[in-house]
Amino acid sequence: MALLDIKNLRASLEESGLEILKGVDLTVNPGEVHAIMGPNGSGKSTLASVLAGREDYEVTEGSVAYHGEDLLEMEPDERARDGVFLAFQYPVELPGVSQMNFLKEAINAQREHRGEEEISAGVFLKLMREKAALVNLDPAFLRRSVNEGFSGGEKKRNEIFQLALLEPRLAILDETDSGLDIDALRIVADGVNKLRAADRAFVVITHYQRLLDYIVPDKVHVMVDGRIVMSGDKDLALKLEDQGYDWIREESVAAV
Protein backbone atom coordinates (compact mmCIF):
# COMPACT_ATOMS: atom_id res chain seq x y z
CA MET A 1 0.00 0.00 0.00
CA ALA A 2 1.21 3.49 -0.72
CA LEU A 3 2.20 5.45 2.34
CA LEU A 4 0.79 8.63 0.90
CA ASP A 5 -1.75 8.81 -1.87
CA ILE A 6 -2.90 12.26 -2.94
CA LYS A 7 -5.63 12.43 -5.54
CA ASN A 8 -6.82 15.55 -7.31
CA LEU A 9 -6.27 17.70 -4.22
CA ARG A 10 -7.69 21.18 -4.40
CA ALA A 11 -7.27 23.69 -1.61
CA SER A 12 -8.10 27.34 -1.15
CA LEU A 13 -7.24 29.99 1.37
CA GLU A 14 -9.83 29.80 4.12
CA GLU A 15 -10.06 33.58 4.35
CA SER A 16 -10.22 34.79 0.77
CA GLY A 17 -11.26 31.60 -0.98
CA LEU A 18 -8.33 31.97 -3.36
CA GLU A 19 -7.50 28.59 -4.83
CA ILE A 20 -3.85 27.59 -4.49
CA LEU A 21 -3.74 23.83 -5.02
CA LYS A 22 -5.53 23.04 -8.24
CA GLY A 23 -5.59 19.28 -8.44
CA VAL A 24 -2.45 17.70 -7.02
CA ASP A 25 -1.75 14.00 -7.61
CA LEU A 26 1.13 12.32 -5.82
CA THR A 27 1.84 8.81 -4.64
CA VAL A 28 4.68 8.03 -2.24
CA ASN A 29 5.60 4.50 -1.22
CA PRO A 30 7.37 3.50 2.00
CA GLY A 31 11.14 3.80 1.73
CA GLU A 32 11.04 6.34 -1.12
CA VAL A 33 12.41 9.84 -1.33
CA HIS A 34 10.47 12.28 -3.50
CA ALA A 35 11.67 15.76 -4.38
CA ILE A 36 9.26 18.54 -5.25
CA MET A 37 10.63 21.51 -7.13
CA GLY A 38 8.93 24.41 -8.75
CA PRO A 39 8.91 28.20 -9.01
CA ASN A 40 8.20 30.52 -6.09
CA GLY A 41 4.57 30.75 -5.20
CA SER A 42 3.59 27.58 -7.05
CA GLY A 43 2.04 25.98 -3.94
CA LYS A 44 4.73 23.70 -2.54
CA SER A 45 4.54 24.99 1.02
CA THR A 46 0.78 25.06 0.78
CA LEU A 47 0.78 21.37 -0.05
CA ALA A 48 3.05 20.71 2.91
CA SER A 49 0.78 22.77 5.18
CA VAL A 50 -2.35 20.98 4.04
CA LEU A 51 -0.66 17.66 4.73
CA ALA A 52 0.34 18.82 8.20
CA GLY A 53 -3.18 20.07 8.89
CA ARG A 54 -2.84 23.83 8.98
CA GLU A 55 -6.26 25.37 9.37
CA ASP A 56 -5.71 28.36 7.08
CA TYR A 57 -6.58 26.23 4.08
CA GLU A 58 -9.78 24.59 3.05
CA VAL A 59 -9.71 21.45 1.00
CA THR A 60 -12.42 21.74 -1.60
CA GLU A 61 -11.84 18.57 -3.57
CA GLY A 62 -9.80 15.40 -3.72
CA SER A 63 -8.45 13.03 -1.13
CA VAL A 64 -5.33 12.21 0.84
CA ALA A 65 -4.84 8.66 2.02
CA TYR A 66 -2.10 8.08 4.59
CA HIS A 67 -1.38 4.35 4.89
CA GLY A 68 -4.91 3.91 3.70
CA GLU A 69 -6.54 6.27 6.19
CA ASP A 70 -8.16 9.59 5.44
CA LEU A 71 -5.49 12.06 6.51
CA LEU A 72 -7.71 15.08 6.06
CA GLU A 73 -10.05 13.82 8.77
CA MET A 74 -7.28 13.88 11.35
CA GLU A 75 -6.33 16.77 13.65
CA PRO A 76 -2.80 18.15 13.16
CA ASP A 77 -1.58 16.58 16.40
CA GLU A 78 -3.17 13.23 15.55
CA ARG A 79 -1.29 13.24 12.27
CA ALA A 80 1.95 13.98 14.08
CA ARG A 81 1.39 11.22 16.60
CA ASP A 82 0.69 8.91 13.73
CA GLY A 83 4.02 9.68 12.12
CA VAL A 84 3.58 12.73 9.88
CA PHE A 85 6.36 15.28 10.31
CA LEU A 86 6.80 18.64 8.64
CA ALA A 87 10.14 20.40 8.80
CA PHE A 88 8.96 23.98 8.40
CA GLN A 89 10.29 26.40 5.84
CA TYR A 90 10.03 29.09 8.53
CA PRO A 91 10.12 27.53 12.00
CA VAL A 92 8.49 29.84 14.56
CA GLU A 93 10.28 31.23 17.58
CA LEU A 94 8.58 30.48 20.87
CA PRO A 95 10.13 32.71 23.53
CA GLY A 96 9.96 31.16 26.97
CA VAL A 97 8.87 27.73 25.76
CA SER A 98 11.55 25.37 26.91
CA GLN A 99 12.82 23.17 24.13
CA MET A 100 13.35 20.35 26.65
CA ASN A 101 9.80 20.42 27.99
CA PHE A 102 8.37 20.71 24.52
CA LEU A 103 10.28 17.74 23.11
CA LYS A 104 9.58 15.63 26.15
CA GLU A 105 5.87 16.24 25.75
CA ALA A 106 6.15 15.52 22.03
CA ILE A 107 7.90 12.21 22.60
CA ASN A 108 5.48 11.21 25.31
CA ALA A 109 2.52 12.10 23.14
CA GLN A 110 3.78 9.64 20.55
CA ARG A 111 4.54 7.00 23.13
CA GLU A 112 1.10 7.31 24.61
CA HIS A 113 -0.35 6.95 21.12
CA ARG A 114 1.55 3.72 20.71
CA GLY A 115 0.53 2.49 24.14
CA GLU A 116 4.02 2.86 25.56
CA GLU A 117 5.17 4.21 28.90
CA GLU A 118 6.44 7.73 29.46
CA ILE A 119 10.09 8.15 28.68
CA SER A 120 12.41 8.23 31.69
CA ALA A 121 14.49 11.32 32.30
CA GLY A 122 17.71 9.40 31.74
CA VAL A 123 16.69 7.82 28.46
CA PHE A 124 15.31 11.14 27.25
CA LEU A 125 18.56 12.98 27.91
CA LYS A 126 20.57 10.28 26.23
CA LEU A 127 18.30 10.36 23.21
CA MET A 128 18.53 14.13 22.99
CA ARG A 129 22.31 14.04 23.06
CA GLU A 130 22.50 11.28 20.52
CA LYS A 131 20.16 12.97 18.02
CA ALA A 132 21.74 16.38 18.51
CA ALA A 133 25.09 14.84 17.56
CA LEU A 134 23.49 13.47 14.39
CA VAL A 135 22.90 16.98 13.06
CA ASN A 136 25.85 18.53 14.84
CA LEU A 137 23.61 20.68 17.03
CA ASP A 138 25.28 22.01 20.17
CA PRO A 139 23.43 20.43 23.12
CA ALA A 140 23.42 23.90 24.72
CA PHE A 141 20.62 24.73 22.28
CA LEU A 142 18.41 22.25 23.99
CA ARG A 143 18.38 24.34 27.11
CA ARG A 144 17.11 27.39 25.24
CA SER A 145 13.63 28.43 24.25
CA VAL A 146 12.27 26.85 21.08
CA ASN A 147 14.05 28.52 18.14
CA GLU A 148 14.42 31.76 20.03
CA GLY A 149 17.34 33.71 18.71
CA PHE A 150 18.48 30.78 16.58
CA SER A 151 20.17 31.69 13.34
CA GLY A 152 18.43 30.66 10.14
CA GLY A 153 20.67 27.64 9.74
CA GLU A 154 20.31 26.65 13.38
CA LYS A 155 16.56 26.67 13.04
CA LYS A 156 16.77 24.32 10.08
CA ARG A 157 19.11 21.99 11.91
CA ASN A 158 16.74 22.07 14.85
CA GLU A 159 13.96 20.86 12.57
CA ILE A 160 16.02 17.89 11.42
CA PHE A 161 17.03 17.23 15.01
CA GLN A 162 13.34 16.99 15.90
CA LEU A 163 12.77 14.76 12.91
CA ALA A 164 15.47 12.43 14.15
CA LEU A 165 13.99 12.44 17.62
CA LEU A 166 10.42 11.75 16.57
CA GLU A 167 11.23 9.17 13.87
CA PRO A 168 8.23 9.82 11.65
CA ARG A 169 6.93 7.56 8.91
CA LEU A 170 6.37 10.43 6.53
CA ALA A 171 8.80 13.35 6.70
CA ILE A 172 8.13 16.46 4.66
CA LEU A 173 11.09 18.82 4.40
CA ASP A 174 10.14 22.27 3.21
CA GLU A 175 13.26 24.00 1.91
CA THR A 176 15.36 22.72 4.75
CA ASP A 177 18.41 23.44 2.59
CA SER A 178 17.77 27.16 2.19
CA GLY A 179 19.86 29.18 4.57
CA LEU A 180 22.30 26.38 5.27
CA ASP A 181 25.99 26.85 4.62
CA ILE A 182 27.81 24.18 2.61
CA ASP A 183 28.97 22.27 5.67
CA ALA A 184 25.59 22.40 7.35
CA LEU A 185 23.95 21.26 4.15
CA ARG A 186 26.13 18.17 4.12
CA ILE A 187 25.50 17.52 7.81
CA VAL A 188 21.74 17.81 7.40
CA ALA A 189 21.77 15.63 4.28
CA ASP A 190 23.89 13.01 6.02
CA GLY A 191 21.44 13.10 8.91
CA VAL A 192 18.54 12.54 6.56
CA ASN A 193 20.34 9.73 4.78
CA LYS A 194 20.96 8.00 8.08
CA LEU A 195 17.25 8.21 8.76
CA ARG A 196 16.28 6.66 5.45
CA ALA A 197 14.53 3.39 6.16
CA ALA A 198 12.34 0.86 4.42
CA ASP A 199 9.26 1.98 6.33
CA ARG A 200 9.93 5.71 6.14
CA ALA A 201 9.39 8.08 3.25
CA PHE A 202 10.59 11.60 2.58
CA VAL A 203 9.08 14.41 0.57
CA VAL A 204 11.80 16.99 0.05
CA ILE A 205 10.82 20.42 -1.22
CA THR A 206 13.80 22.30 -2.61
CA HIS A 207 14.94 24.85 -5.14
CA TYR A 208 18.42 23.46 -5.45
CA GLN A 209 19.65 20.45 -7.28
CA ARG A 210 22.69 20.53 -4.97
CA LEU A 211 20.72 19.02 -2.08
CA LEU A 212 19.68 16.17 -4.33
CA ASP A 213 23.32 15.32 -4.89
CA TYR A 214 23.42 14.40 -1.26
CA ILE A 215 19.91 13.10 -0.75
CA VAL A 216 19.36 11.15 -3.93
CA PRO A 217 15.64 11.07 -4.71
CA ASP A 218 13.69 8.22 -6.25
CA LYS A 219 11.43 10.70 -8.01
CA VAL A 220 11.47 14.37 -8.84
CA HIS A 221 8.23 16.32 -9.36
CA VAL A 222 7.72 19.79 -10.66
CA MET A 223 4.89 21.89 -9.29
CA VAL A 224 3.64 24.82 -11.31
CA ASP A 225 0.59 26.88 -10.44
CA GLY A 226 -0.88 24.44 -7.93
CA ARG A 227 -0.37 21.27 -9.92
CA ILE A 228 2.34 18.68 -10.38
CA VAL A 229 2.98 19.09 -14.06
CA MET A 230 5.93 16.81 -14.58
CA SER A 231 7.59 13.90 -12.81
CA GLY A 232 10.83 12.10 -13.53
CA ASP A 233 13.94 10.68 -11.94
CA LYS A 234 16.89 12.60 -10.47
CA ASP A 235 18.03 13.73 -13.90
CA LEU A 236 14.97 15.95 -14.13
CA ALA A 237 16.45 18.04 -11.32
CA LEU A 238 19.67 18.44 -13.28
CA LYS A 239 17.76 19.58 -16.33
CA LEU A 240 15.82 22.12 -14.24
CA GLU A 241 19.03 23.43 -12.75
CA ASP A 242 20.35 23.89 -16.23
CA GLN A 243 17.31 25.20 -18.08
CA GLY A 244 14.94 26.71 -15.50
CA TYR A 245 11.18 26.30 -15.55
CA ASP A 246 10.10 28.04 -18.75
CA TRP A 247 10.25 24.97 -20.94
CA ILE A 248 8.05 23.09 -18.48
CA ARG A 249 5.50 25.87 -18.44
CA GLU A 250 5.40 25.71 -22.22
CA GLU A 251 5.13 21.94 -22.32
CA SER A 252 2.45 21.81 -19.70
CA VAL A 253 0.43 24.46 -21.50
CA ALA A 254 0.91 22.56 -24.75
CA ALA A 255 -0.23 19.36 -23.09
CA VAL A 256 -3.55 20.87 -21.95
Binding site: A52, G53, R54, E55, E75, P76, D77, R79, A80, R81, F85, L86, F88, P91, V92, L94, P95, G96, V97, S98, N101, F102, L103, E105, A106, A109, Q110, H113, S145, V146, Q162, L166
Partner: peptide
Protein backbone atom coordinates in the same frame (compact mmCIF):
# COMPACT_ATOMS: atom_id res chain seq x y z
CA UNK B 1 0.24 24.93 15.26
CA UNK B 2 3.97 24.37 15.47
CA UNK B 3 3.61 22.54 18.77
CA UNK B 4 0.63 20.53 17.57
CA UNK B 5 2.54 19.54 14.45
CA UNK B 6 4.89 17.73 16.82
CA UNK B 7 2.09 15.77 18.42
CA UNK B 8 1.04 17.94 21.36
CA UNK B 9 -2.70 18.30 21.83
CA UNK B 10 -4.14 21.77 21.55
CA UNK B 11 -4.47 21.83 25.32
CA UNK B 12 -0.85 20.82 25.83
CA UNK B 13 0.31 23.35 23.28
CA UNK B 14 -1.66 26.08 24.98
CA UNK B 15 -0.30 24.99 28.35
CA UNK B 16 3.29 25.32 27.19
CA UNK B 17 2.67 28.70 25.61
CA UNK B 18 0.91 30.02 28.71
CA UNK B 19 3.59 28.68 31.01
CA UNK B 20 6.10 30.56 28.88
CA UNK B 21 3.96 33.67 29.07
Amino acid sequence: FYLRSRGLTEQQARGLMLTAF
